[in-house]
Amino acid sequence: MISGVGLGYRREMVDLKDEILASNVDYIEVAPENWMRMNERYQAPLKELVQHIPLSTHGLSLSLGSPDKLDVEFVKQVKRFLTDFNVSCYSEHLSYCSSGGHVYDLMPIPFTEEAVFHVANRIKKVQDILEQRIAIENVSYYLQTMNDLTEVEFTKAVLEEAQCDLLLDVNNVYVNSINHNYNAKEFISAMPTERIAYGHIAGHYDEAKDLKVDTHGSPVIDDVWGLLDFAYQKHGVFPTLLERDFNIPDMSELNVEIDKIHSFQKSDIKKKQKG
């Protein structure tokens, strides 16, 4: 099991091994697609790290919301990876990245009732094959094609129907609240406490005043820190991971954000105890 504060681990961070182990990073997370099908030499740095620190996984290509057939063979390969690397947590995105072939990026699932059942059935199938519960992440999106349901209704309905967990990405909540003009705190409050398995936090890019893009390429902004604090107060503290995929700075800079998550976790646990 994972707890505390995590860091999204990328191959570019291979030289940071000792610094990661010396920091207050409690666990690391990888996209299994980036490490599966690679040889021992590629996998060696990750294998070394996971001897010291727990590993969680955050998939990219499962395409849970896709109209294409579920890639069962791929799910089985993920299962082997989870076993080989002794991973307990696997999460994926509440989105689709293929429709008549892969496009290798996340697209928004139409918020309809039919889509709820479609994606929930696929999540259930994945959970059956993996023989474990998975968590799904609320993704950033920049447009929506069908709005029969709100994002809150859609997300809650999928969680309920699929009996899966939620990976609450507070940056995505922020980005979406701007992009789709809703209240971020209301979204967070509406999420079922008992389903929040863990969280993500990251920086984003300001495309326009009313359009933010989830890039993981810059520091976390104050408003998003505020949302993490709010989420902890609302739902209790949950393991939270910093994602930084581009413009990766020195570990000292990442440590500032890692330690900031720790300090929110500590103060919010105290508040909870006092309250």
Binding site: G65, S66, P67, Y96, S99, G100, V103, M107, P108, I109, P110, T112, E114, A115, H118, T145, M146
Partner: peptide
């Protein structure tokens, strides 16, 4: 009513091309 899968494919088409 339009099938949401058709909408997904239409969005994908518009994105890639």
């Amino acid at each position: 009513m339009e099938d949401f899968r058709d909408t997904q494919q239409a969005l994908t088409n518009a994105i890639v091309d």
